[in-house]
Design a binder for these strands. Structure first.
Lengths: 353, 353
DNA sequence: AATTATTTGTGCGTATGTATC
DNA sequence: AGATACATACGCACAAATAAT
């Protein structure tokens, strides 16, 4: 480490620990040179960098002072899988609400749940002078290929808060839903309402899908329900619009193993399943009960109002934003929050008395 | 003027006049010192400032080079009325797609269609070092209270593209829908399909509402249809969720002047009207025909698929982004585009043969 | 109003270290 | 291994701005 870097680091720590208060004059260059046992030039080099970074400002003939306003950009990066799909706009809106109240702006990027795109977004954010980053990881159930970028950001003193997902072996701050709990309560509800043959549709490329599946399993095991090859149907981001509909059609047409209840990864899947069931004139909830997830528009604003698990959406965004500002202001070092959903019962499930 | 400033200025002029091309190596420090007849320290002082400002970058042991990226921020401001509502996420997504392809990022702000908030957003953008701004004006039918900010931005050499709205007496670049045409073709379609009593619900605080109304009027006049006090129902951003439903209920319960067809400002209004009609067991389209606007999810993805006018959404966003980059790159000075919608006929209107 | 001390700003010369080719 | 070029560091001199005397 160079001498001027040492001087810089020490002065910065004094400022951060309020040994020198904002607006106050720091000792003159010659005194600093004596104190640090370096030449005045070296001190000047350190000071000039700190001026450039906004920590200090100088008054010719008067002295050097600690800057109050700093040159913070007041920009926060937000990397979302989708900007315009489903519940994501609500999450972004929640983030934006909290940040704009605190006079921050958001720089927005979209990965379309694609690892390559995510890499570009992260590279871009690294070049952008942001104070913090909120990111919804792409394909969070897979190996985190872009993990080095996450660490690079943290090295650059840019705090990160993950939303929706997280990485098992990497201890980042995050704000997520308790997806395992969601899967558990939905399945438990179905079991307790006498459903014998329960099926689940799960997404296998994000950690939410895996966890909802885990909760599903937990409830099934608790009640000693067998898991057969027909119990679970997996899909991915890429085939989410086709595969679940296709699978349920196949099951219905085969006439075998027809479930009496289906827990769906989210409302979009639930909605597409319901569409198919209606085509085949299958009664909901008498023949088949349906539970979705996220309590989106699809679940409550349309003709068939279906049971779903409430998703905090904008609250989740707000919480992530709030957490990030705490990290930026060094009020906390690591924040990990898990928000529990709640089952909202509607017409797609029958309640036994 | 100091010596290092002179060196800086001269080098900068060489760069700007392409005497030294981007990416190319400039002469070593010692040569520059000889050339400018100053010490190497002075040259270093000049170079270090230029590195800091982003004009140059250095490679230890190799040389100093002209930076290709320059000090452009590659940030574009986007001010939208809503982030998470209805078609706006699609528009933002369209903007983001085009900009990210051109390695720009968007800084996002939301006005909630409120003039005060819009002022804050504009002030914020002025302080943000953006290269251009795409803005959906709030309350575009009213007096443009924030117009001075628009002009300030243009003065600062930050081009602006308005979307959705514009201001009559101010000649800004814009990308909009031909709302008057929309109103015209929808109304004409209803008239030509033998509807005698056509009603319109319009929003009066944005220019889109006014223009759709104008198109409505034009068609009505062309076919000599009278406009009575019961023909038009106005609403605003603030009462959009309640007033239209309330008005149609009132009309139905009074039993008088019940229309045989309704043109709605947008699909949200159409959807809320349809909800009310269903409550009263009024048949669509036999008793009352409905046309919405924007061809959103509401019109085509739900149980009641209704006639609507296709809205370019993400294409509009893309076009706005494309136009803005042309302005930034000085390829054009003013761009004003009007995109025509198209009537998408579905089950909420009957076609006479 | 002029002088002086203090403090930052500009500029030069020199020596040595380190990365790259 | 040597040449080249940037990086760090020290010492010195003088200029310019400001505040106090």
């Amino acid at each position: 480490m160079t001498k001027y870097k040492k001087v810089e680091k020490h002065l910065l720590s004094l400022i951060n620990n309020k040994k020198i208060e904002t607006g106050q004059k720091i000792p003159p260059e010659n005194e600093l040179a004596d104190f640090y046992k370096v030449s005045r030039n070296t001190v000047r080099r350190a000071l000039s960098e700190m001026v450039n970074e906004g920590y200090l400002f100088t008054k010719h003939g008067v002295g050097t002072f600690v800057n109050s306003t700093s040159n913070k950009t007041k920009n926060i990066g937000v990397i979302s899988t989708y900007i315009n799909d489903y519940i994501f706009p609500s999450v972004i809106s929640g983030i934006n609400d909290y940040l704009s109240e605190n006079s921050y702006s958001i720089i927005l990027s979209e990965t379309k749940n694609n690892i390559e795109r995510e890499m570009h977004c992260l590279e871009n954010m690294l070049s952008k002078n942001i104070e913090g980053l909120i990111i919804e990881p792409a394909k969070s159930a897979y190996f985190p290929k872009n993990i080095e970028y996450y660490y690079k950001l943290i090295e650059k003193n840019i705090p990160i808060v993950l939303i929706h997902g997280y990485f098992d072996k990497h201890n980042f701050s995050h704000v997520i839903m308790d997806d395992s709990y969601s899967g558990y309560i939905a399945t438990k509800f179905l079991i307790e309402n006498n459903h014998k043959n329960i099926m689940g549709f799960f997404k296998n490329d994000d950690i939410q899908g895996i966890n909802r599946y885990n909760g599903f399993l937990k409830a099934m095991n608790e009640y000693n329900r067998p898991i057969t090859p027909n119990t679970i149907s997996w899909f991915t981001t890429e085939d989410r619009n086709l595969k679940p509909s296709y699978e349920i059609k196949k099951i219905i047409e085969s006439g075998e193993h027809i479930p009496s209840a289906i827990f769906c990864y989210n409302d979009q899947i639930a909605f597409s399943i319901i569409k198919v069931l209606k085509e085949y004139n299958i009664n909901i909830p008498d023949d088949i009960a349906i539970i979705g997830h996220d309590d989106s528009f699809l679940a409550h604003a349309l003709e068939t109002k279906f049971t779903s698990i409430q998703h905090p959406k904008d609250k989740l965004g707000r919480t992530a934003a709030e957490s990030l500002l705490k990290l930026i202001n060094k009020e906390e070092e690591k924040i990990q929050k898990k928000i529990k959903g709640e089952l909202i019962i509607r017409d797609s499930t029958k309640v036994m008395l």
